[in-house]
Design a protein around this nucleic acid. Structure first.
Lengths: 331, 331
DNA sequence: GTGAAAGCGCTAACAT
DNA sequence: ATGTTAGCGCTTTCAC
């Protein structure tokens, strides 16, 4: 009849050292009283919380939402719960988030750094505590870290090459903050594609948008159209900035894609809702999220990893109306 | 020199019963060894986790992202951490989310129900455990619950009235699942506005989209344009469905807003990126999120509340190009 | 196969 | 103003 606490614990945890009969008895009783295990107590005793923390700059916008979905799926499968924090592109919040997550005893942290993050002191602290740290998508240049990124260079190269194939020759680039790997790589890919076509790189055609929003995209485009020799195409490192550029062109009666071709980045949902629909780069965020979590799991297993791990995911170009001057495109 | 654990605890918690000198000493030592309090231990001992759970159908899309921002702001101010769960519009996930949150010992749950939620058994379980439960935006019809909602009826009335003022007379409605309060209220507001103008309600003009997406909006519009007497305006309970409608009209060469006027709901970011820009309802999600958290706090204080509390937030109509047939609008 | 008991890190009586 | 100690709910040795 009566059973000791340890017996109950064993039954609930499928411990082999218990008879099927008593296990059944316990399970029924538990269901009857609507028993809920207390994760805090379990975590405290076991010394592991089964929690991972995720820090993203923001959660609206398709990319990070999708990444989170991927992380959650993988985490659920491994019996982990996920705590999501938004840094709001503010390094101060990011530091607070780290603090919060460490206090919550997360077993690992997955982070995509904010735009305003320039030093990595708060991340060092995480490592120092022995909490596995995985960066995804955005990371600080010049830091050797565990990371899952997409091949931004290849994406920049492919987008620019696509525009060149469509016959555009004076291609501008809306660039992001260069201390972030991904904006730098997109710019480098763009430059490399021009060079591969034997075209000179004209610095006038590179406009830095920080942050990359509709507003900064508008400003950049206003500037570009007033150039003595304005561009006939734009490759933007962000769909948002590209949307701003499109607005400016529309207002000035410039036809897209006949007069100016456009290609963006992130495959935001609105890219299929504008006129014309915007060509963009799909980053396969869900896959990226899953990989990031898997990497965390691996780091957790091997206490002493063999140096920083880097995983690269191949993006794919979604060609839509905004960049198709010719009938079709077979790239 | 040496100090007891309780002394340290007191210093860290700003207990008055400790000298300023020792407090300082402890704080310095804590900083030196990079001390992090263990929330699980504190929570276990105190019997409170300082955690709230939030369940939303999804996190992409502007509305819920903004609501979450509001909740987080209010929670942070009250010293709470937030666990965000996505139900993915699936009641099965929703039940799992509830389970997860209860195990995590959250002190309250804020939820916006999924589309597939029809019964409230899993929510009853939450109440039964004495965990305060607050619904926001979406709730099940016919359940008396604590909730913060927007005045969907007023919004439906205002949107439809605005279209009428612009001279549209055959106004269709893209409606959502009627077991959810908000879609029902939007429909009722629409009907009431027609009636107030002395116009008959034509059931042919009401198209149910479930779920309300670009695809279902397209289908609905295809059907509407083929009516013997097609509509000259559309009020949609979702911007997504409206975007689908706009695409269909565009493809058929129907001019918006001259031939057909459009008004949507939720003020999604893409409403300013389409051509024409879409009129929509701003729901003030951040405010809604803050109110929802405040309501939770109040429920937590008074163990026995005086019946279900309901808070209503007034939305506001954002008039843009898609609904302006006349020169201007002063509603 | 089952029970007794220690202890995870912390707080809050209750001493002193 | 500081120290001592019990115990939050659970798991896990260790003993039987």
């Amino acid at each position: 009849m009566g059973l000791s606490v340890s017996g109950v614990s064993r039954a609930l945890n499928n411990d082999p050292r218990i008879s099927a009969a008593t296990k059944k008895r316990v399970l029924e009783a538990a269901a009857a009283i609507n028993y809920q295990p207390n994760n805090m107590a379990t975590g405290l005793r076991r010394g592991k919380s089964k929690l991972v923390g995720v820090i993203v700059p923001f959660v609206d916008g398709r990319f990070f939402a999708v990444v989170i979905k991927g992380i959650e799926r993988a985490a659920r499968a491994a019996g982990f719960n996920v705590i999501i924090c938004q840094s709001d592109e503010d390094v101060v919040h990011e530091r607070q988030n780290i603090e919060t997550l460490l206090q919550s005893q997360v077993e690992g942290i997955l982070v995509s750094v904010s735009l305003t993050t320039r030093d990595a002191a708060h991340f060092a602290k995480v490592q120092q505590r022995g909490v596995p740290l995985v960066f995804f998508d955005r990371l600080l240049r010049g830091h050797e870290v565990n990371a899952v990124v997409i091949d931004d260079y290849a994406a920049g190269f492919a987008s620019t090459t696509h525009l060149l194939q469509q016959g555009y020759r004076r291609i501008a680039h809306l660039a992001g903050a260069q201390h972030l790997n991904l904006y730098q790589q997109r710019l480098l890919g763009y430059k490399a594609a021009l060079q591969a076509y034997g075209l000179p790189a004209d610095d006038c055609l590179i406009a830095y948008c920080e942050p990359m929003t509709l507003a900064t995209g508008r400003q950049a485009m206003e500037m570009l159209v007033q150039l003595p020799n304005p561009p006939d195409a734009v490759f933007s490192a962000s769909d948002w900035a590209l949307a701003g550029a499109l607005q400016v062109l529309e207002e000035r009666g410039v036809h897209v894609p006949l007069e100016v071709g456009l290609a963006g980045f992130s495959n935001e949902t609105f890219t299929t809702l504008t006129t014309p629909k915007l060509t963009s780069v799909e980053q396969h965020g869900e896959q990226l999220g899953e990989q990031a979590f898997q990497l965390f799991l691996r780091l957790r297993q091997h206490k002493t990893p063999a140096g920083p791990q880097q995983l690269v995911i191949e993006p794919s170009l979604q060609v839509r109306d905004s960049s198709q001057r010719l009938g079709k495109d077979t790239s």
